[in-house]
Simulated scan of single mutants.
Amino acid sequence: MFIVAKAMLYVCFALLMGAFILYSVPRESRPEIFFSKKLILLLIVFTPLFGIGELIRLTMHLGEDFGYWMTFQNIVFSFEVGKGWLFLTGISVLLFFMVLFNDIKEDRFFAGLVVFLTAGMGISVGYASHAASLESLGFLAHSLHFIAVITWSGVLLVSGYFSKGEGPNLSFYKWFTPLAVGCLVTVIGAGLWLMNYIVPQYVNSYLLDYGQALLIKHILLLIIVVYSLINGIWLKKRLKEGTTGIALNKWIKAEGIFLFLAFVTTAVMTQQTPPHDVADTLKMEEPSKLFTLFSGIVPGENPMLFFNFSMMSLVWLAGAIVLVLSVFASIKQNKSMVLAIVASILAAGAIYLAVMSSVSL
């Protein structure tokens, strides 16, 4: 339940940020989107409702001895996660009434203003994050990472799933391509920064559920980058030449599916113990069943993983490359989106198996 709430929180953030950004650019520089005010208001209401899931989880974990209501109050007013949620709720209320009493679709200045308010809501997530509790700069790293993710994914999701016609035009790509590149660089840079705090033993973390989820998230990000290159470079070039013959929206939607899967994986990570020291964490938790199943390794008391590429890992990697090329061929020939998505999932699975067959003790 908490994983679903967390994933939907990310979706709400992304859709709000994407809609506000698109409404803040000139009409001719965006696809024709149909995103009703009622839907925007619902997303604003749902954001703090989904955000309260972490507070409820902590209350259920800590409240058995002291009473659940007293524990909940203490968490809200004393814990950083509670203060972050109060800040999120306060901005949500302000945003709700601003959108209710203004025409966001016609007022670009107002749309730009609420983009900054939504970013402020994103900062509240960084303030309540685990990284912020470890290091003061962890707050900045998480906030940058989160805002970059919802900006990039939000514009894509709204453009793909809430637009009319064949898809974006060249005017859209002129501003979105540099924005997407900036967001990607920020996501990677801030992500590495966060890992330095949370997962200093990255390869060793594969032994744990948190590390497995993080690895799967990174593989999904790799698949998303492949789609971004196809959508943002190759299809853009075809559009400029006037020779697409391809429904751009279809492939933006395909990329959006993997963005959602990345949201779900991130939500799973929030329910796991961050492995600051893998050996110590293994004293309290069992090794990941996924790890033991696909690597065949049973860790000892003080495990230390390292990469040792084998013929099998190279075979899996070659299979992944072939599958990625087949995705590009499917898009080039404008075939079924389902076919491309299945090939992409298989490619992600092949990359995962290549990694798992490469680790040794």
Rank of each mutant, 00 (worst) to 15 (best):
A5L: 07
A7M: 08
L9G: 14
L15I: 05
L15E: 06
A19E: 08
L22Q: 03
P31I: 02
L39Q: 05
I40Y: 06
L43F: 15
L49G: 11
E54T: 13
M60L: 15
G63W: 10
F77Y: 15
V81D: 11
V93F: 15
I104M: 01
I104R: 04
F116H: 09
I123N: 07
A128T: 14
S129H: 13
A132S: 13
L137A: 06
A141L: 13
H145M: 08
V149F: 10
S153Y: 08
L156P: 00
G160Q: 00
W175Y: 06
V181L: 13
V181W: 05
C183V: 12
V185Q: 11
T186H: 13
I188L: 12
W193G: 02
N196A: 05
I198G: 11
Y202V: 14
Y210K: 08
Y210Q: 08
A213H: 03
L221S: 10
V225M: 07
V225D: 02
V225Q: 03
V226W: 01
T243E: 10
T244L: 03
G256M: 00
G256H: 00
I257H: 00
M269P: 02
A279W: 14
M284R: 15
P287G: 06
S288K: 05
S288G: 09
S295Q: 10
G296T: 12
P299F: 06
E301W: 09
L305S: 09
L305G: 07
F307P: 00
W316A: 07
L317F: 14
L317R: 09
V324C: 03
L325C: 06
S336I: 00
